[in-house]
């Protein structure tokens, strides 16, 4: 009974802490707007992201500046930039969130088992993550992207591959410090099995690390996805993704700077939102913990 009460108190404490932080509101609003646009894209804009409008180009065939029928202007094919931006949010957010969700589950489970059991499992994990971490993330993504034919599931896989090792290590070190705690020892003495202890007793304590890492890392995944698309090994054209849009704008920034400006702002708002939110969640969960690798 008291345990339940304490848990409720702790939970209420978290929300109470969170709503006191302006960062949480600002970040939450930014993420909220982007998520809303992504989920309800057809409601936000009635146009089709792939439709090339006859009136979407100037008489000389250049993209239209923002205004009138095209609030954010058009691109080099006369497509509506606002519509592409909104549908691009769908692609970018779906990819980043899916990649981080799978990485969160995988990294947390592997990290807990390695930390709890130690021995060969642990050594194997550490050596394997050593190898993955030795690759500069963008380069590893580039290598994988050029090897596998880029498609949305492949990009999710690539982002997941470069995401989970760091989380696994964070969770592992958290588990290591938990393993010797008294309540774990009591559970063991009471006859609880390893998996039971891991999921019942250790998981709730490592969840903090996972949640914070997830929130912050969605931001960096959005950036890497954009970079991959920009380098031509990301979301295949003509699907609208923010990185693709910047790629298409790259050679035309002198005549149509809005083609790179608006996707850049969209990325900035999204990543900044997730970073602010992640930062706030970290502080609200525990002012003392800070995410540090090692």
């Amino acid at each position: 009974m008291t345990v339940v009460l304490e848990k409720q108190k702790a939970r209420r404490g978290f929300w109470a802490q969170l709503v006191r932080l302006p960062r949480a509101w600002v970040g939450g609003a930014m993420v909220g707007v982007m998520l809303f646009a992504a989920v309800f894209a057809p409601l936000v804009t009635p146009k089709d992201p792939l439709q090339q409008f006859m009136e979407g180009l100037s008489p000389t065939g250049t993209p239209l500046a923002p205004g009138g029928n095209f609030p954010l202007g058009t691109d080099h094919l006369g497509r509506d930039l606002l519509t592409r931006l909104v549908y691009g949010a769908r692609v970018s957010l779906f990819i980043s969130i899916a990649a981080n969700l799978t990485a969160a589950v995988f990294g947390t489970v592997v990290g807990m088992f390695a930390g709890y059991y130690g021995g060969a499992v642990d050594t194997l994990l550490m050596r394997f993550t050593d190898i993955l971490l030795a690759y500069p993330a963008v380069l590893l993504a580039l290598g994988l992207g050029s090897v596998l034919r880029p498609s949305i599931p492949v990009i999710i896989l690539i982002l997941m591959v470069i995401t989970w090792p760091i989380l696994a290590r964070l969770v592992r070190s958290q588990t290591l410090s938990m393993r010797e705690r008294q309540f774990i020892e009591s559970a063991r003495a009471a006859g609880a099995t390893g998996p039971y202890i891991i999921f019942r007793h250790i998981l709730p304590h490592t969840l903090t690390v996972t949640v914070v890492y997830f929130t912050l890392n969605v931001a960096s995944s959005v950036l890497i996805e954009a970079a991959l698309s920009f380098l031509g090994v990301g979301v295949p054209l003509p699907t609208a993704s923010w990185g693709n849009m910047i790629l298409e704008g790259q050679s035309r920034y002198r005549i149509a700077p809005w083609m790179i400006l608006f996707p850049t702002l969209a990325i900035l708002v999204t990543t900044l939102g997730f970073n602010l939110l992640g930062d706030a969640i970290r502080d609200a969960l525990d002012p003392r913990t800070s995410l540090r690798l090692k």
Partner: peptide
């Protein structure tokens, strides 16, 4: 610092080129 880690560097580069190069 938050803006710094949030902005895609390649896009920032293009904006910089546009403003300070063009």
């Amino acid at each position: 610092s938050l803006i710094g880690i949030s902005i895609p560097s390649f896009a920032l580069g293009l904006v910089a080129l546009y403003v300070f190069g063009f």
